[in-house]
Simulated scan of single mutants.
Amino acid sequence: MKSDESLYHTTAVNDNGVKGHAYIVGDGELDVKISSPRKPDEAGANPEQLLGLAQATCLAATLETIQAGKGIEFQSEVRVGVDMKYDTHGLRFVVQVQAKIPNVELVEAQKMLDFAESRCPVSKLLSGNEDVSVELVDKFTV
C-alpha cells in the first residue's frame, strides 16, 4: 500500500453553525445535535466536546493496540480537558490530556504513552501546539 493511499475517508458536514446539527455523509449516518458552549442549557455537543472525544478515543485506541502487542490487558483510561479561552485573535482551545495506565511500571507506562502520542493521528495533528499538554497520571485532575 502506498503511504499516500487513504485507509479510510469520511466527510463531516456542518451547515447550521451552533444552531443545528453536524453529520457524517453516508458511512454510519452519524448525526449530532450541535449547540454553543456558551449556552449550557441547550442540548447538543460543541466543538470542545467533539475535540476532547476525538483525542481521548484516538489516544486510548492507540494505547490499546500497543498494550495488546505487549500482551498486556487493556485497562488504560484517557481523559481530555478542553478549555476555550480568549487570545489576541479571538478564541483558542487549551487541551489537557491525562492518561492512566494501571498495572504497568511507571517507566514502561511513560514509554507506552510517549509511543502512543507519536502514533495517534489526533495527537500528531495537535503536537507542537503550546496549548496542548499530555501527561501520565495516577489520579485524574481534568
Results as ranks from 00 to 15, higher is better:
E5D: 00
L106K: 15
S133A: 08
A54Q: 08
A56S: 15
N46V: 00
V25H: 07
E117K: 14
M84N: 01
D114N: 15
S36V: 00
I66F: 11
A60H: 08
L113W: 10
G44Q: 02
D4K: 05
V122H: 09
A54M: 06
N16V: 02
T141N: 15
V137K: 07
E73F: 03
V95L: 08
D114W: 12
S35N: 06
I101T: 10
Q67M: 15
T88A: 15
Q75E: 13
A99D: 07
P47V: 09
Y23I: 03
H9C: 01
L50A: 07
A116R: 09
L91V: 10
E130L: 09
G28T: 12
T62S: 09
A116G: 14
Q67N: 06
V97H: 11
L53K: 00
K111Q: 15
R38D: 11
F140Q: 09
C120A: 14
E73T: 14
I101E: 02
E108A: 14
E108Q: 13
E64T: 14
R92Q: 12
A12Y: 01
D138S: 13
N103I: 04
Y23S: 07
G17W: 00
A45F: 07
E117S: 15
E77R: 12
E42T: 09
S127R: 12
F140V: 06
L136E: 06
K124Y: 09
R38K: 10
F93D: 02
E77I: 02
E5C: 01
V18G: 05
L126C: 07
G52D: 11
A45P: 04
S35P: 06
P121E: 13
L126N: 03
S3M: 09
G44V: 02
V132S: 09
V82N: 01
Q98R: 13
Y8M: 07
I34V: 15
D131N: 11
S127K: 12
N103Y: 05
S123C: 14
P37T: 08
Q75Y: 00
A56C: 02
P102Y: 14
T62K: 06
V134A: 05
K2Y: 08
L106I: 05
G28D: 11
V82K: 05
K100D: 13
G71V: 09
H9G: 05
L7A: 05
L125C: 08
R92P: 00
V104P: 06
Y86M: 07
L59A: 03
S123G: 11
D15F: 02
N16Y: 02
L106T: 10
L50R: 08
Q55K: 04
A116I: 04
Q110T: 14
I66P: 07
L59M: 02
Q67P: 07
A109L: 09
Y86I: 03
K111P: 03
R92I: 03
P37L: 03
K139V: 11
L106E: 10
K111V: 10
E48T: 07
L53M: 13
L30D: 05
C120D: 08
G71H: 12
V80E: 03
V94E: 13
V18R: 13
V80Q: 05
S118E: 14
S76N: 11
L51C: 07
A43G: 02
D4P: 00
E42K: 10
L106A: 12
C58Y: 01
R92C: 11
C120P: 14
T10P: 00
G81P: 06
L125H: 08
G71P: 15
D31H: 13
A68D: 15
C120T: 13
G44T: 06
A54L: 01
K124C: 12
M1N: 06
P40N: 04
